[in-house]
Amino acid sequence: MSTAIKAGRPGPRAWLVMIGCEAKMVARDTAGLIVPIGLPLLILVMSASSASDQIVANGRTALELYVLPLVLTIVIATTGIINMPSFLAYYRRSGILRRLAVTPASPVMVLMAQVVVSVIQTVIGITAALAVASLAFDAGPPTHLATALGVFVLVMAAMYGVGLIVAAVAPTPNSAVAIGLVAFFALGALGGLFGGRDALPDALVTVGEWLPFGASVEALGAAWAGAPTEPAHLVSLGATTVVGGAVAGILFRWE
Rank of each mutant, 00 (worst) to 15 (best):
residue 218 E to S: 13
residue 217 V to Q: 00
residue 221 G to C: 04
residue 200 L to V: 06
residue 218 E to R: 01
residue 207 V to E: 03
residue 209 E to N: 13
residue 204 L to S: 05
residue 199 A to C: 11
residue 219 A to V: 09
residue 215 A to D: 01
residue 205 V to K: 07
residue 217 V to D: 09
residue 213 F to N: 00
residue 206 T to C: 02
residue 208 G to T: 03
residue 223 A to I: 05
residue 210 W to Q: 11
residue 208 G to H: 08
residue 211 L to H: 04
residue 217 V to L: 00
residue 206 T to Q: 09
residue 205 V to T: 11
residue 213 F to Q: 11
residue 228 P to F: 07
residue 213 F to D: 10
residue 228 P to N: 00
residue 200 L to Y: 01
residue 223 A to G: 11
residue 224 W to H: 00
residue 202 D to T: 14
residue 207 V to M: 09
residue 226 G to M: 00
residue 204 L to Q: 14
residue 226 G to P: 03
residue 214 G to M: 07
residue 225 A to N: 04
residue 197 R to V: 15
residue 198 D to H: 13
residue 220 L to A: 07
residue 220 L to S: 10
residue 223 A to Y: 04
residue 219 A to Y: 12
residue 208 G to A: 12
residue 216 S to C: 02
residue 197 R to Q: 08
residue 206 T to A: 06
residue 210 W to C: 12
residue 216 S to K: 08
residue 225 A to V: 00
residue 215 A to Q: 14
residue 199 A to R: 07
residue 219 A to L: 12
residue 203 A to K: 12
residue 205 V to F: 05
residue 226 G to E: 02
residue 202 D to G: 04
residue 198 D to P: 03
residue 228 P to A: 00
residue 222 A to L: 00
residue 222 A to N: 05
residue 209 E to S: 00
residue 224 W to F: 10
residue 224 W to Y: 09
residue 221 G to E: 10
residue 215 A to M: 10
residue 227 A to M: 15
residue 223 A to M: 04
residue 216 S to V: 07
residue 214 G to V: 08
residue 201 P to F: 02
residue 227 A to C: 13
residue 224 W to D: 01
residue 226 G to A: 02
residue 204 L to H: 14
residue 204 L to G: 09
residue 221 G to V: 06
residue 207 V to Q: 08
residue 205 V to G: 14
residue 216 S to F: 05
residue 228 P to K: 02
residue 210 W to T: 08
residue 227 A to P: 15
residue 197 R to E: 09
residue 221 G to I: 02
residue 213 F to A: 11
residue 203 A to H: 13
residue 207 V to W: 08
residue 209 E to M: 07
residue 212 P to R: 07
residue 203 A to Q: 13
residue 205 V to N: 08
residue 202 D to P: 09
residue 211 L to F: 14
residue 228 P to Q: 00
residue 218 E to H: 08
residue 204 L to K: 13
residue 211 L to M: 12
residue 211 L to V: 06
residue 207 V to H: 14
residue 200 L to I: 03
residue 225 A to C: 06
residue 227 A to T: 15
residue 203 A to P: 04
residue 223 A to L: 01
residue 212 P to N: 15
residue 225 A to P: 13
residue 208 G to Q: 07
residue 202 D to C: 03
residue 221 G to M: 06
residue 199 A to F: 08
residue 214 G to E: 05
residue 216 S to I: 06
residue 213 F to M: 10
residue 227 A to R: 06
residue 207 V to Y: 13
residue 214 G to T: 04
residue 202 D to Y: 06
residue 214 G to H: 07
residue 215 A to V: 14
residue 213 F to I: 01
residue 199 A to Y: 12
residue 224 W to Q: 10
residue 223 A to P: 05
residue 206 T to V: 12
residue 207 V to T: 10
residue 200 L to D: 07
residue 212 P to K: 05
residue 223 A to D: 00
residue 225 A to Q: 09
residue 212 P to M: 13
residue 217 V to P: 03
residue 215 A to G: 10
residue 200 L to G: 02
residue 198 D to G: 10
residue 206 T to G: 14
residue 206 T to K: 13
residue 214 G to W: 02
residue 221 G to H: 04
residue 206 T to E: 14
residue 214 G to Y: 06
residue 199 A to S: 15
residue 213 F to V: 01
residue 210 W to P: 01
residue 203 A to L: 10
residue 222 A to D: 01
residue 213 F to E: 07
residue 199 A to N: 11
residue 223 A to V: 02
residue 199 A to W: 13
residue 221 G to W: 04
